[in-house]
Design a protein around this nucleic acid. Structure first.
Lengths: 218, 218
DNA sequence: AATTAAATTTAGACAAAACTAAAAATATGT
DNA sequence: ACATATTTTTAGTTTTGTCTAAATTTAATT
């Protein structure tokens, strides 16, 4: 697989939302930042290579084989992201571009050993699951913090209320995107939560919890 | 710089023995495993880009700028090699192919942090020096173990006597290519050496020392 | 020094992956 | 259902890095 082919395979996978839905030429061209005509050429080639199903005017999806390739790439991408954050002091929002390059490195041993070095992580710094060597993984879902059951662990990935005061509150309380959060307990009385955030324990009100998105794998 | 251009620059550097000597089209074509005509095209392009000096029928060498690029690539290559051996359990003879891919990854922070993680190593697993960020490094030389001064540190990179008995001796005494060796002391009486090899101390006779090559940076 | 051999360059072509412009197919709105 | 708009494909180019075959320059041999 060439570099460009791998990029297309990944894009088809992601646009198909992991569920291998048909992806349109235009959607692909937009996501790849190429012209639709280039996409037509490429998906035809991928089809000939047996990694994609392509029907003229209908769209593309991946074959079994194509999905395997996509999952292997995603596995590599996310393992490298963990490495960059855990070992090389990158922050969660700096890793993507570099991981995009590293995911194309070809060496099975490299990835196996990296996985071992990192302690077989289950999720990347954005809270997205890392497929196993066989391509298995649990899907990630995004929920408001007040909706997840006690015991859930996840990554803070967004806010519903993006007003100045709320953002200031988060900043003051050292709650940031990318932080790992575990829900320890919930007060039934007022809905406030006891959470562990980045190894620090704190309590947050229901009002805060209803405005923070958590990405959990389940 | 494209991937292919970078490969040519590195090859020109290496064939010029680090001393920026003129490199012939044929030598390059052999080392790159391409045809001479392809080399002509490429060196012309490198010349236009200001990274190489090219004179028809005479050969190429690197400009100042080209040398900087070459050294940056070599720095990356060798740092990755150290990482593969130190952190990912690769052996010294497995690293080259993978490092060849990794050296093309573009991220200054990545390399700075990798350097830090590895403890700012001076040499790679083959005993070759790692250029500093500014491109400075001490040249590596290969000497017989009995010829180096007490206190020298280096990597075992070869044997002079490659007969069965000698190789068997090395194997039995757990001396292998790639091992780090420090010369601790020398007995003037019989020329035997006290050495540290891979954190283990041992004594070897002059006869052994005259048949082992050490790569030291000096 | 002339002739042959080797190295190098030129000219023209090809494959990959992109592009533009025009044609064809599908979707949409009234 | 028809006309229009949108999406997708075709056809023909471009660029990068390679190739082959032929021409040219440099080197070597006698």
């Amino acid at each position: 697989m060439t570099l460009s082919e791998e990029d297309y395979i990944k894009a088809i996978y992601h646009l198909g939302k992991g569920e291998n839905r048909m992806v349109s030429t235009n959607a692909l061209s937009e996501s790849m930042e190429t012209k639709p005509s280039s996409v037509t050429d490429m998906v035809r080639k991928l089809s000939e290579k047996g990694v994609a199903h392509y029907k003229k005017y209908k769209g593309v999806c991946l074959t079994e084989n194509g999905q395997k390739i996509a999952l292997a790439l995603i596995r590599k991408h996310r393992l490298w992201e963990v490495f960059l954050v855990d070992s090389l002091n990158f922050s969660w929002d700096e890793v993507h571009e570099v991981a995009e390059q590293l995911e194309h490195i070809k060496s099975e041993k490299l990835i196996d050993e990296l996985d071992k070095l990192l302690g077989y992580p289950q999720v990347d710094p954005h809270g997205d699951p890392i497929p196993s060597k066989k391509g298995e993984f649990k899907k990630a879902i995004k929920k408001l913090l007040n909706e997840v059951p006690v015991g859930s662990r996840g990554i803070c990935v967004g806010v519903k209320d993006s007003s100045g005061p709320f953002l200031k509150f988060l900043d003051k309380n050292k709650i940031a995107l990318g932080d790992a959060i575990t829900v320890l307990d919930k007060e039934e009385f007022d809905g406030s939560l006891h959470i562990k955030i980045k190894d620090r324990k704190m309590q947050i009100s229901d009002q805060i919890a209803t405005n923070l998105y958590l990405k959990i794998t389940e």
